[in-house]
Structures are given as structure tokens and as C-alpha cells.
Amino acid sequence: MSFPLRLFVRWETFLLLVLCATLILGTHVSRYFATSSNISIALASITPVAIVALPMTLVIVTGEIDISVGSIVGLCATSMAVCLEHKFSVELAMVVGLLVGTLAGLVNGLIIVGFGLPSLVVTIGTLALYRGIAQIMLKERGVSSFPDWYQSLGFGTIGNGPVPWSSLLFLALFGAFAIFLHVTRWGRAIYAIGNNREAARYSGIDVRRTILGVFVASGAVSAVAAIVLTAYLASARSDTAMGLELPVITAVVLGGVNIFGGSGTLPGVLIGLLVLAFVQNAFGLAGMTPEEQEIVTGSVLVMTLAIFGLSGAVRRLWRR
């Protein structure tokens, strides 16, 4: 296969094409699409999902899954809220949130590695457990006493331009995760585990410690998402981020990560996130109601996957 074709058949390249189409579509449906106010809000609204998608990519590449991320975000938000209720400073609350998230991830990882249980089952359990703890801690109360500088993490943009502060935070994390996964030998170990766990073990990779590590990362980074999300919502409640796991896993899979582990790239996930953000945004600006948007977003997802699958089939037919 010659170089341009090989580049084209890469999922990421194809996805980039879909992203370009989405952006062109956006400018067609509304003259307000290309305004910095609109672009900033499209980015800001996807950022909590985008942040959690980073460790989720690692988790899925190892062949595991973490369904409990939405509940971890909710538990972190709730812990921060309780700190604020007790008149702690918001900085201290953030530290507590990070600790709680890390601990929640550690608990997930220890149960999965320690008892050798499937992560799907364990994290379905902790999804209910963490949300339950959050509901007991905060009951029906909502806490909105976040300072203004904190809230600007949600909607605020750099120099009133199109880039939200929260996206900057995401980009920093993205850089760190991309280097870790794609450059370091630990990243190679994660792919090796996802491709063939036995082979990875025999080649001297500490499989258990690596899996424990990705779940701890998932918990800790979920806490960062909790900070961004509570800023975006200017409040924290026990039901914050309920159902967050679905868009996160959707973005990761759309980004080309094999749901059974072993392959996928973070740049792919980044483009997948942008497609999700701007497809929703453009259809909203076109005047669609949220129900209609869900139908169309679902169709775009399926169509994207189908077209790529079809192009692969045609290619194989040709080579035969």
C-alpha cells in the first residue's frame, strides 16, 4: 500500500475528515457557529468528558473498563462541597477532592487486581457504592459557594477568546498522557497487556501493578474533572456527573480505541471528542431539540463507523 492510502485508512485520518465536515456543516447551519463565544462553550461543555477520557483510554487499552468514573466525579464533587460547607478554603477542598478520587481509583484497582475480578463487574458495583456514599454525605443539599475565580474554570476563556481555561488544563493533561502512552516503555507495557496478557507477563511486565496504576490514574483524573465540572455548574450535588461514563466511553471508542484492548491512540480520542462536541453543537444551532440531536448524533456515530468499515471491505476486496 502506498503512503497516502495507508494514511487515509488510518482511523484518525478518517476521523479528521469527519471533523472537517462537521466544522463546514456548522458554518453552514448557523452564522453564529464560528463565533468565539460558541466555540468556547462547545469546548467547555465537553471538557469534563474529555478529561476523564484520557485515563479511560489507558484503562480500555489494557483490556479493562471503568464504569464508575461518573460516580467518582460525583463523589469528589460531593467531598469538595462538604469541605466548603465546613468553611474550608476552596484550595483545601480541591486537595481533598483529589485525594478522594485517588482513593476511589485505588479501591477499584485493589479489588480488581487483588481478587482477580473482571473490572466491568467491580466498577458496576463501585458505581452504585460511590454514588450512594455521595448521596449520604450531601443528601438533598446543593453547595454553590464556589469563589468567582474558581467558577471561571467552567465558562471563562483566555483573554475572552475562543479557548476556555478548562481546555488549557485538558491540553496539559493530554500532553502528559500522550507522552506516557506513546513514548515511554510503560506505555508500551499497557499495549502489550491489552494485546496478550500472558505474553506480557512472561516478558517481565508487572501486569498487576500496571493495571492498578491505570485505575488509580482513572480515579485521580476523575477528581480533576470534578473540579472542572463543579466550576461549569457553579455548584456540587450528590447527583453531579450522573451518567458521565457513557459519553466518555463513546468518545474513546469513536476515537479508534479497540474496546477489547490492545490498540488505539490518544490523538484519535482527541479528534473523536472534538467530533462529538461540534456535532452536538452544530445540530443544536440548527434548531434541533435535544431528542432530535440524540437521533442525529447517534446516526453520525453509526454512519462514521459504517463508512470506515465499508472502505476497509472495499480495500480488502481490491487487494484480493
Binding site: 478518517f14 475528515l17 469527519v18 465536515a21 463546514i24 456543516l25 453552514h28 454512519m303 463508512i307 472502505s311
Partner: peptide, 9 residues
């Protein structure tokens, strides 16, 4: 593929 992607626009 490009045409299919641009069709909605």
C-alpha cells in the same frame, strides 16, 4: 467518503 461526510452539510 468525503462526499458522504459532507452530505449532511
Amino acid at each position: 467518503a468525503t462526499a458522504a461526510a459532507l452530505l449532511p452539510a
